[in-house]
Design a protein around this nucleic acid. Structure first.
Lengths: 362, 362
DNA sequence: CAGCATGACTGAAGCGCTTCAGACACGCCA
DNA sequence: TGGCGTGTCTGAAGCGCTTCAGTCATGCTG
């Protein structure tokens, strides 16, 4: 304890090095940040002395204060990390984002959410980041107000536009409607829908018409809406379509929901899922019940994660450009950081990928 | 651009608020950090004024400089994020870690690695964190030197002990040997081994005896060593055991390797994998080749990720307490931060979980 | 040789906050 | 009445760095 403290106290600073070399502090700073401002021989001497003194370079925090930039991008999640990362779609988006900002020497600061559907405002207020990226937070999450209060630039992924923020998202409604149309074309008429959280309250279960209104998660809203609207236009009453809400997007929760859906009477001949993970759960549930996919029941997912091509059977799903989404968000963040204005939001394309988990109704 | 700049310039500070209220800066600071140091009526007045001025609270960077603490834990990965998160084991560990540090109002700063098997030293040097957690980095990664140079406390997960650092890890060697013994007991004698990266050079392919020596990743070293040593003790020559190295730990790379292993002559009757993800790839490869698991070939994994219970067939695997690993690492990090000395490393337990992917040799 | 551009280095003013040793007024006890 | 503890608030010294306007030789031009 004592020794750690004294370690800390003894840590050399720019001044220590400057004094040791016999130059001004500014010169030492230049040795690190502006090599062209001093002779290379002096620079060498400074770096050498710094090394021998155990000086590892300018303190990042002090540097940030002086430059008013922390070289960090905050990433706000709607939930805790385990829930979050069980969704491979997030990992891919995050990777796209990370590789973009990493290439510009920025780091990613992770702000996990809690039951309110986003990070606590207090943690947002104290996070050292100079731009925030919000991933699929519910409308009007307190975290968003905290970002606004700090005046930080914001880019939102999969979320309605907020004044002054940049946005990237995909055409979820269209994607869902593509999937529903496809199944209708295949002759299906009895459907079941498996969605992930409509609200950040951790509830799983059948969805009442009441709960379907004013859904704060845009993605859930659009995918569910896309499914139901398309079915309705084809004459399938929304009230006759059982909907199960899973509180998260993982396989096991999907299995649970699918078990319920597949035991309704009459049994749906096609299941529409809000994510591939949920769809994988459906495949499992069908197997559990001795049903065969696609001859007894067709299943479609959403996202087209890599695994969708290898499931048994391979999954028919709606493809969205996940990595691209992350990359775009990263570029937008860097652009805002450089003082750019938020451009018009672009909605990335979606398309239907037909594989073996769907078949015409026989 | 201009307006952003002026926005920035105009942002109120403690002084702005102090002047507006007519008190000293110290008092405003106390209003936020030490409510007991001023009358609650004054405090209310200060907070109210701050709000009306658009002051969102003390600037985190300046605060960090003054307190010499940034309330952030750095997390260093051996590879880029996409590779990393395709491994569910990492997500679970990360979640355990995040929930622990989050509970103490710390955030996680992600430092993705590159081809050198860890984050670039420059990014480590500049990251604003006051303790680092290294996850499965190779021995002597440059990033580790950078941490040492900064004098930051360090906790390592799945890595050999470094002087002065805290450590948490599981008994990988023992786990591997448990799995190998089990298969030997089941009467198997022809084995194949599927490991993830032995070196951070991005190479996939059959492993020569040469490449098996001086493996810098401790986990790979111990799991592979545990398999081979145990087999050797039972009289199975290591040179007769084909080993495939996948450059990452994902299903598709596993499938590729298993395809090679399952087409050796004589064909192995049992496959030992370094991770569940790789094992899932084996299941897929077996299916591709028209082999049935477990009657034609037995497969064991390592980790016991949740999905292992739901694969087809459910996976026999070595269980390690993943979430616990992350939690412990988080606790250690917080302890070091508080000035504690690194305690003796604890190796967490492993155990074999028998499911349906293995069967006695017929 | 005056005049001037150039390169190398420095002084000092911040960046926005925390903290700690007081200062000050007030009420209380002896 | 004098002394003293208490509750409030302040002044000023940092935290470690960047940056910008200079200063000072030095060498070059005309």
């Amino acid at each position: 304890m004592l020794s750690v403290d004294s370690d800390r106290r003894r840590r050399p600073t720019l001044d220590t090095v400057a004094a040791a070399v016999g130059v001004s502090r500014a010169t030492v700073s230049n040795a690190y940040n502006r090599p062209d401002q001093l002779s290379s021989s002096l620079r060498e001497r400074i770096l050498e002395t710094a090394r021998s003194l155990g000086y590892a370079g300018p303190d990042p925090v002090a540097r940030s204060l002086a430059t008013r930039s922390s070289a960090a991008v905050g990433f706000m999640l709607p939930q805790g990390l385990s829930g979050a990362f069980s969704d491979p779609a997030l990992s891919i988006v995050l990777d796209g984002l990370a590789s973009t900002v990493d290439g510009h020497d920025h780091v990613l600061v992770l702000l996990p959410g809690d039951a309110t559907g986003g990070p606590r405002p207090s943690i947002v207020t104290r996070a050292q980041a100079d731009v925030m990226v919000a991933y699929s937070l519910p409308d009007s999450a307190p975290a968003l107000d905290a970002v606004a209060a700090r005046g930080l630039p914001l880019v939102v992924i999969d979320q309605p536009v907020l004044p002054g923020s940049a946005r990237v998202e995909v055409q979820d409604f269209l994607g869902a409607s593509l999937a529903a149309s496809f199944l209708l074309d295949q002759g299906h008429s009895r459907f079941g829908i498996l969605t992930f959280a409509l609200r950040p309250d951790g509830v799983s279960g059948p969805v009442s018409a009441d709960r379907r209104s004013a859904v704060p998660f845009r993605v859930s809203r659009d995918r569910l809406g896309g499914y139901l609207d398309t079915l309705a236009k084809a004459g399938v009453e929304p009230d006759n379509v059982p909907v199960w809400e899973a509180r998260g997007s993982d396989r096991e929760l999907g299995r649970l929901g699918a078990r319920w859906l597949l035991t309704r009477t009459p049994r749906p001949s096609a299941l529409l899922c809000a994510s591939d993970q949920l769809a994988f759960g459906c495949l499992q549930a069908a197997r559990d019940l001795g049903l065969s996919v696609p001859s007894d029941v067709s299943v479609v997912g959403f996202d087209d994660v890599p695994e969708a091509a290898y499931s048994d059977p391979p999954l028919t799903t709606v493809r969205q450009p996940l990595a691209e989404k992350g990359r775009r968000a990263g570029e937008l963040a860097l652009k805002l950081l450089a003082g750019g204005r938020p451009p018009r939001p672009t909605r990335l394309d979606v398309s239907l990928v037909q594989r073996a988990s769907t078949a015409p109704r026989t």
